[in-house]
């Protein structure tokens, strides 16, 4: 019990005193996850719209694969990226392993199925009607696509928030491809694992509190989007 109490008060002190290491870890986590979601957004949202609105052979199988990948274990995503980026891998010459860029690639792999899946579910019922309406009013393809995005913005917003939640909370992939290097690739989740193993509960709890608060904010955003 003492561990928890002391850790909690130590954590508050670390947060309030503006500890550089803790805030550096928080900052990197936020940036890596944000960049991953933004990169993924550019292809996942249009892909979700296209799959949601069109009938094509094996569509059901494609949706089933996306739904399966939504639950993709992070360590598997990490393993794939690790194998690709390791020295003997096909992309080894890029020397990206154990860098924030590698973490972004792994997180893009993880969040894309979520963004595609949630967007797809949001547009499949209304998308065609919106497209037809836009089309009958003279919109071209780009204008119709932009109208669909605007009209389905709540679903798309929810998909991005859900994707961000997934990215910032996962530990396996970033641990594998980032290497948890202090001041370089250490993010909130990997830091919690490390500090707990080392018995530095105050630092682990401090980061845990921030992660929890962040999740609370993400949930508020998600509910706002879903309720809108």
């Amino acid at each position: 019990m003492d561990n928890i109490t002391n850790g909690f008060f130590g954590a508050l002190e670390l947060i309030l005193s503006g500890n550089r290491e803790v805030y550096g870890i928080i900052g990197l986590s936020l940036v890596v996850s944000f960049v991953s979601v933004i990169i993924s957004m550019f292809f996942s949202v249009p892909l979700g719209i296209v799959i949601g609105m069109n009938r094509f052979p094996f569509r059901k199988a494609v949706i089933m694969i996306i739904n399966t990948l939504m639950g993709l274990p992070p360590v598997i995503a990490g393993l794939v990226v690790y194998l690709l980026l390791s020295r003997s891998g096909p992309l080894g010459y890029l020397r990206m392993l154990h860098t924030p860029q590698a973490m972004v690639i792994a997180q893009v792999l993880l969040v894309s199925p979520i963004i595609i899946g949630v967007t797809l579910a949001g547009v499949k019922d209304r998308g065609n009607l919106i497209q037809k309406t836009a089309f009958t009013l003279g919109a071209n393809r780009c204008q119709a696509l932009w109208t669909i995005i605007k009209e389905c913005r709540t679903s798309i917003g929810a998909s991005l928030v859900a994707g961000y939640g997934r990215a910032i909370s996962e530990v396996g992939a970033v641990m594998l491809v980032g290497g948890n290097i202090k001041g370089h690739t250490r993010v909130m989740t990997t830091a919690i694992v490390l500090e707990t193993n080392m018995g530095n509960f105050d630092q682990a709890i401090a980061i845990g509190i921030v992660l929890l608060v962040l999740f609370f904010i993400l949930n508020i955003l998600l509910q706002k989007y879903q309720g809108a």
């Binding site: 209304r126 009607l129 919106i130 037809k132 309406t133 836009a134 009958t136 009013l137 003279g138 919109a139 071209n140 204008q143 109208t147 605007k150 009209e151």
Partner: peptide
């Protein structure tokens, strides 16, 4: 132009709905 039985109105004002085709 086509007016459907169950028209889809964009999630915006009446003005913007009527203006949609003109803006396109």
């Amino acid at each position: 132009t086509l007016v459907m039985q169950h028209p889809y109105l964009f999630n915006t004002t009446v003005f913007s709905n009527i203006a949609y085709g003109l803006r396109c």
